[in-house]
Amino acid sequence: MLGAFGFGLVTAAILSVSAVGFTLQYSVSNVLNLAFVSIMTASGFVAYGLIVVGVTLWLAIALAALAGGLLSALINWGIYTPFIRRGTSTFGMVIVTISTALIGQNLIQAAVGPGFFSYGVVTGRAVNLGGLVLTADQVVTIGVAVAVMAATYLGLQYTKLGRAMRALSVNPSLARACGVDTGRVVAVAWLASGVMAGAGGALLFLDTATFSVTTGSYFLIVIIAAAVFGGVGSAKGAFLGAVILGVATEVAGAYWIPELKDVVAFAVLVLVLLVRPRGLFSEIATLRQAVG
């Protein structure tokens, strides 16, 4: 069953990039962005378009990640920020973001149609890494995820901007009082989150080999599950949640009913909600509620 473990690692890699991006932006901006998956899908199709015109695979994926960042920043600037300035509650914002998600998803569908697409990368020879059978593309995918995670960790921990983000996520008013340029920090968070969404989407499409507009939608379940599992708003928690869920769903699929693989993620989510609703690592969700 080592093979299942190998696939689990690939799933975990893609999931961690996506879930950390999702959570990072949430903790900084306090907006639960349901259009995240639309950004993933849009970026995946950007990568597809670039590959069709002859750009090499990994360059196309990198450019798609950038496109995701731009799109994310644009959505924040054009739609979310005006609503927040109006004083829309977090409660109202989730309706704004799901409207945006619906618009985005269907605009993409109108553009590309209902068909199936493929990057046209024929599965290469598999390599055997200590019992794990992985293709070269899958190894690179895992590498990209590790690099993104490391960059995120170092950035949050050691740069001024990262410290500002963390301050903002714990106590926005205090951060503002200490001279943090909130608007700029939030804008950067949206950009970074979008880049991760873009990378996650393009990598997901590479992993599924064939994709359509709806390929990303089931991924929302696991992203949410990973985010809640690790603790709402905690980037570290989201990463651990992603790794555990990514591997757990594949391995559980191998031993249990394979059709219900995604349901495993859901079962974990329910369990966490019942036992420890704040997630394993975070206090933010409840703290924010108290602060208002």
């Binding site: 977090t90 409660f91 914002m93 599950a225 859901f266 019942l274």
Partner: peptide, 29 residues
Amino acid sequence: VGLRRLRGDFQAVVLLVVSVVASLVVESL
């Protein structure tokens, strides 16, 4: 399960996931 002490917006998303998973279960079995 869904109305546990989670922030209102996360509550909403968990309920969304419930409905997605329910259709997944029905289609898979």
